[in-house]
Design a protein around this nucleic acid. Structure first.
Lengths: 191, 191, 191, 191
DNA sequence: ACCTCCGGGACCTCCCGTTGGT
DNA sequence: ACCAACGGGAGGTCCCGGAGGT
């Protein structure tokens, strides 16, 4: 067998390029160039660019620290803050101007790829649901102001987060992200 | 003899197509087809697709009801709610799955068009600033809980709004938008 | 306008290449190379390779000497013989190994292009019909043996002709064509 | 442990696919999919797609009922009619729109594969020769009109047959085949 | 013998911007 | 100002055949 890891290299390269350039702007040529593999090898592993992007989204979602978020060891609110904080750091590390793959694809691919859009919608819902779960815990511990409904608040926080990621991206600064974190946990959730 | 408002038709068509398809996915051919004009005419009025898109963004921003938002007639919070509410209705009227041009371009065009990205960033900042202005008014009237800083809260609300538009878009439902409106004005700002 | 005749050159080149190589074996690159035009120009004139091939078939059919065949000046049988004889000479002039576009496409494109297949079927029917018309004339003049039904014989002769063109093509010799002509007119129709 | 009759499956699949799609339109991928074997296995048994197609043609020719045609039991003309009639039924059973492999390849592969073209030409000549043999028998029995030369008539009938198969294929109807049979044996050969 | 993975190259199509006659 | 025609280049996809471990 000539080489190994071709598929792995491909998905890695695609992850980087799709995150940085977007779906339509990133050509398969760009991706294979970044992955360091020949173009002809792409379709040995994926049926289409869309199929490859699906895998990239799956891996992206899998990289979220959901385990730590739901582990009932420390305070729920602390865990939620850590979840967002870690995510912010990872986002910044990849480059603020790359933004969040879910947010990027949520606006770019509607009407162009139903499978990806569905996956993105589900992933966003999953995040909102996880937040709701933690907030419900928090409420049971009496940490949460009583007027805040976890079911509504969870997705709301995810929306606010994604919005701030988008603004950070287009502005080229992490400020909106830090602002989101501070306001959410130091003001909104703290009475 | 050619059409009269060729430029107008062009911008109208481009507004629709760019909002629905995105920048990279919409070809100049798609745009002129939607506008009902010949392709060669585009470059009599704009230097490039990018230039045309700039004009589309400007018109999009101009269509926001900033005047009504800042007119000191009714209650500031009421005006802010109306601003978002009207915007939601217009968004829904254009098709939820189209989303918001600013949100769409904020994630798609970073790294591809600095002029558009800058314009989008500025427009988002403008919205946040307008919200801050109104919230400051509100604070002066004592309508606003004291722990909420208008300077932080204004952009935060815009982020949350844009995030909910994105989620509505990818989910194909207006629910996140209504949820945003209710939570923001019935809970968050009504402590 | 940079150049003219681009479309004409394109169709001419396509006629040559499609006849010689067949539909699937001839790439658009081959065609534009033969036509001496850049590849990007093809789709200014035709929607697809299939569309271009349709035009080629139309021109091919138009090149048959149907007028002379149906002109009631000389003997019907003489005109029919001339029709086939002329067609044979033109076929040989283009290269026996190219065969007949209708025959070639009739076997290659079924299941791949319904529009072309239909056009080819119609054209073949047209030839058979024309032969029938002339044979009917002949019968009325008493030139035709009574047991030969023009309605059946017309298409039969066309089939035999196309079959002999195919055999000449694959054999690389005009012998089957001459044989067709002699047997048909000196034996079959001369009872 | 792999399959047993890999080669057999391969040739069977290739026979079907090449007959239905043609040589250039059928990819090796299509063939192995139809055969239910992995693509890499092809080149263990054949040097190339061309080589595989050669085998397919050989089997196709072997499937003709030449034995029954030449067995001097019943009337020569009856045997010839049966030969064509059986061939027609087998052709129809495989799908009229598939046509005849010899006819299909005779027009598609000239200039692309000399070995296949040669084999097809020889096979066609073989058929014509067999017909001539039987017609000669017939002549000796006095069954055949004296003006019909078996040497010319044999190939002529094969050409007419192949032409009618092509017309049946592109027209999607067996009518030309039945017409060929009736006219040939009820009119042409019956004085 | 088998078969997974590989890969250089070419497929058809379409892109965006331009040219130049009207 | 208009716009039909143009064109270099790239888009995603798929081709046939091979390499090499099992």
């Amino acid at each position: 067998m000539p080489q190994r890891n071709v598929k792995e290299q491909l998905v890695d390269g695609a992850s980087r390029v799709l995150l940085e350039q977007g779906y339509h702007a990133a050509s398969v040529g760009d991706i294979v160039a970044a992955a360091g593999i020949p173009k002809g090898s792409v379709y040995n592993h994926f049926d289409s660019k869309e199929d490859l992007a699906m895998e990239v989204v799956r891996r992206y979602v899998d990289s979220y620290p959901f385990d730590a978020l739901l582990e009932p060891e420390s305070s729920p609110l602390a865990r939620l803050r850590t979840f967002f904080s870690d995510t912010i750091e990872r986002t910044v590390a990849r480059g603020v101007t790359s933004g969040c793959l879910l947010g990027n694809f949520s606006t770019e691919l509607v009407g162009h790829s139903d499978p990806i859009s569905q996956l993105v919608a589900d992933s966003l819902a999953q995040m909102g649901g996880a937040a709701t779960t933690v907030l419900t815990e928090s409420r049971q511990r009496g940490e949460l102001p009583k007027d805040l409904d976890p079911v509504v608040l969870g997705p709301y926080l995810v929306d606010a987060f994604e919005g701030s990621v988008a603004r950070a991206k287009v502005g080229g600064t992490r400020a909106p992200l830090d602002s989101f974190l501070d306001f959410t946990f130091d003001v909104l959730l703290k009475r």
